[in-house]
Design a protein around this nucleic acid. Structure first.
Length: 511
RNA sequence: GGCGGCGUAGCUCAGUUGGUCAGAGCAUCCGGCUCAUAAUCGGAAGGUCGUCGGUUCAAGUCCGACCGCCGCUACCA
């Protein structure tokens, strides 16, 4: 017998220089839904998110706030954890890069790459703004008129930059071009969607330069094991969280159980995740990730969310307006994963009203009412030969395929196909016109069975509502504990259970 | 400049290797129903599949050119 392969899903770890916003929530909800689907399939599943807490910007922000970096991050990191709690994110772990286990893993990865000869001391030269404590490239420097790429002034301070040389350790990324291309050639579906993957391949083909991995000027970070004057930053620090959370360097069994991961990332960090990271892993002799799912931005009103444009959306505010599952569903259903989405309040309400209130919510309500009137409130068993069984089969098959492709919006569309078919089935049979009896029972049993299957298939997106539907039609236990594909085989609704109507699942919202 | 992508019904998008591929959802209009959250069901309308050429018995589906839009172009989640 072959061991069931496990699923290990990660989000990027979020930099704690800002509080959680819609963009963070977007990726995290997608990861959560994918994870919940994986659990339904019976695969051992682990979902990781966390916070990135080192680096100069945190150090500076902490100084500005008059607190230590540790105290600063101790204040913000829990806000992320709390936000995910409110969004019903079922992450199994939450890693902070300031934790000991993370530092152990970073040291291990660094040492392995160093021992492999892929980290070497070299000179980093560049133009440095003392005020920013940052290096700038020629493209970034501005002229006195503020034109980028034509001057020698810091873009932020408008002050002359200085030419600095610094001893840095470099990771010899340039050695990995062919190996990366070979690997991706053998794993053509590793990056999804394809056009995003092509961008990464383009980056690799255009040539790879070594990158520096340490600074001596930085204090808030993890020192190099063999040369503690140097502190590593960004790449070897942040990326390594994915390994740290499964015991890399400390717990071999945990590591064996979960690695390699499926990484959910944003389109802005493709280079780091799809080029740097696999090269670092190759150097260290670590198996490469199973997959990278590259998402787009969730824009707000067509524009990138930013503090300066004042359009930052707090996801927790939306929950108050539209409900937790309403918000989750919108995020998952509205935008094909990989494309940029556009968040608008109008779109949120339109999606909510049509799919959740009118289709699913109303279906549950009308079924409960007819069962109450025609079946004494007791749910009958479905017809084994119901025409709806084909729709249920299709809904499962297609949504399973789309979840496997990491396409929640398409998976949900397939699931909603069963809801539409069930509404149509009721219209065709008009049980509310018939006298109680076997014919009515058959139709209502079919509808209840469809609702049972819908509850299972939709549970990764709207876990609370799915459980409510599950209970109202009289099913015992937790919908999340069901196992595919057996649980969605037509005929699973036992009949004989009390059906409860309850309040509307999704009250219509008027703009 | 270089590399890559996109342009299909009002809107958002599906359309494997060319031959029921001209589709779905939403929106609109008409009709039915009244169990249901003025929900639902049926039907209709709506696109020369960016433009112009080419290959082919046959092209959104391949090739070329052009127009328009966009992404990436290196140490910044």
């Amino acid at each position: 017998m072959q061991a069931v392969s496990s699923t290990y899903v990660t989000t990027p770890i979020y930099y704690v220089n800002a509080e959680p916003h819609l963009g963070h929530a977007y990726t995290t909800i997608i990861g959560d839904a994918i994870t919940r689907w994986s659990r339904l399939t019976g695969a051992p599943t682990k979902f990781l998110t966390g916070t990135d807490e080192h680096g100069l910007k945190i150090q500076q922000a902490a100084e500005a706030a008059g607190v230590s970096p540790q105290a600063f991050t101790d204040d913000i990191a829990p806000k992320f954890a709390a936000a995910w709690d409110k969004l019903n994110i079922a992450n199994d772990d939450f890693i902070r890069t300031t934790e000991p286990r993370h530092k152990v893993a970073v040291a291990e990865l660094l040492q392995r790459c160093y021992d492999a000869g892929d980290i070497e001391l070299d000179t980093f030269a560049g133009k440095y703004c003392v005020a920013c404590e940052e290096y700038y490239s020629d493209d970034e420097l501005v002229s006195a008129e503020g034109v980028a790429g034509e001057g020698e002034l810091c873009p932020i301070h408008q002050r002359p930059v200085e030419y600095f040389e610094e001893e840095n350790y470099f990771f010899r990324l340039s050695r990995f071009q062919d190996r990366l291309l070979d690997w991706y050639a053998k794993h053509p579906t590793a990056m999804t969607p394809e056009h995003r993957g092509n961008e990464a391949l383009g980056l690799i083909r255009s040539g790879l330069r070594d990158f520096s991995i340490s600074r001596t000027s930085l204090e808030w970070g993890i020192p190099l094991p063999w040369d503690p004057k140097h502190v590593t930053y960004v790449w070897f620090d942040a990326l390594t969280n994915y390994l740290a959370a499964v015991g890399f360097g400390s717990d071999d069994q945990d590591y064996e159980d979960w690695w390699p991961a499926i990484h959910l990332i944003g389109k802005d960090i493709v280079r780091q995740h799809c080029v740097y990271w696999p090269a670092m892993l190759m150097s260290a002799g670590v198996e490469l990730p199973k997959r990278w799912a590259i998402g787009g931005w969730l824009l707000v009103g067509g524009e990138k969310m930013s503090k300066t444009s004042g359009n930052v959306v707090n996801p927790l505010d939306l929950i108050d307006d539209i409900g937790l599952d309403g918000f989750r569903y919108y995020v998952l259903a509205e935008t094909p994963y990989g494309s940029d989405g556009d968040f608008t309040y109008e779109g949120l309400v339109a999606r909510y009203n049509s799919d959740l209130a009118n289709n699913l919510g109303n279906l549950a309500a009308r079924v409960a009412t007819v069962v109450a009137k025609k079946c004494d409130g007791v749910g009958p068993a479905p017809d084994p030969d119901s025409p709806l069984s084909a729709a249920a089969e299709t809904a499962y098959t297609e949504s399973a395929a789309q979840w496997a492709e990491l396409q929640p919006s398409r998976a949900l569309d397939a699931t909603w196909g069963l809801i539409r078919a069930t509404n149509a089935h009721l219209e065709q049979n008009e049980p509310w016109k018939a006298d109680p009896g076997p014919d009515v029972d058959r139709v209502m049993g079919d509808a209840l069975e469809a609702l049972r299957i819908v509850a299972i298939l939709s549970s990764p997106a709207i876990p609370d509502t799915a459980q409510t539907v599950w209970e109202r039609i009289g099913m015992p236990g937790q919908v999340a504990d069901q196992h595919l594909p057996d649980a969605v085989t037509w005929g699973g609704y036992p009949g004989g259970a009390d059906v409860v109507k309850g309040d509307p699942l999704f009250p219509r919202i008027k703009l």
